[in-house]
């Protein structure tokens, strides 16, 4: 993409962005706003955590990385597994299993005593409000398209502690995806 078109990309109206201000502005102009969204499917990235299938909106995923050597941060919160170096960029890597009550404690994956990571494990680099963050997943399933009609509210039993890390469920054919709110799951 050229620099211009990147800029353009940021400026253009997209239905998933809040542009109320701009819309007010456009009132009266013959602005080319798209018609009300119909059943526009959204793309999710599905992945495994302790055998369960989770998914996050793909626009929130910056990239998927194999697991590099992680460096633990002394005295950090247990959820922070360590930092990784991704092409010169320093990224924190988090565990979400404890928060989702899938595990008792965060796995030992950083430092000299950590075993080699499982072959299928990956780090999802997510965009969060406070910057990019890595999330350890056991394996990546792939991209699934979910229409609004395929989404359901999370079952009451899924509420985890005092946080709603699960925003809903996606059902597509026989598959059930637990939709994760990454922002909540990674909150300190």
């Amino acid at each position: 993409m050229s620099r211009f078109s990147e800029l353009l990309d940021d400026f253009f109206y997209r239905p998933d962005e809040d542009v109320s201000g701009l819309q007010d502005f456009a009132a009266g102009s013959d602005g080319g706003l798209p018609a009300a969204p119909e059943e526009v499917p959204e793309e999710y990235l599905a992945f495994h955590l302790e055998g369960e299938c989770y998914a996050v909106p793909i626009r929130g995923v910056r990239e998927i990385s194999k697991v590099p050597p992680l460096t633990e941060i002394p005295r950090a919160e247990p959820q922070l597994l360590g930092v990784m170096n991704l092409r010169g960029e320093l990224l924190p890597v988090y565990d979400v299993k404890v928060r989702l009550r899938l595990a008792e404690r965060a796995p030992l994956v950083a430092g000299p005593d950590a075993p080699a990571p499982p072959r299928s494990a990956r780090i999802l680099v997510l965009r969060t409000e406070t910057g990019p963050a890595g999330v350890w997943v056991d394996g990546v399933v792939g991209v699934v398209k979910l229409k609004p009609s395929m989404l359901e509210a999370p079952p009451p039993g899924m509420r985890v502690g005092d946080r709603d890390c699960v925003v809903g469920m996606g059902r597509r054919g026989p598959m059930l995806y637990i939709l994760l709110d990454a922002e909540q799951a990674l909150a300190p």
């Binding site: 460096t71 941060i73 002394p74 005295r75 950090a76 922070l80 930092v83 170096n85 320093l90 924190p92 969060t128 406070t130 910057g131 990019p132 963050a133 990674l186």
Partner: peptide, 15 residues
């Protein structure tokens, strides 16, 4: 620098 989410880490100034 340990920017972004890691700013509050104590005793470490960067990597």
């Amino acid at each position: 620098p340990l920017g972004g989410r890691l700013q509050s880490v104590r005793g470490i100034s960067g990597a």
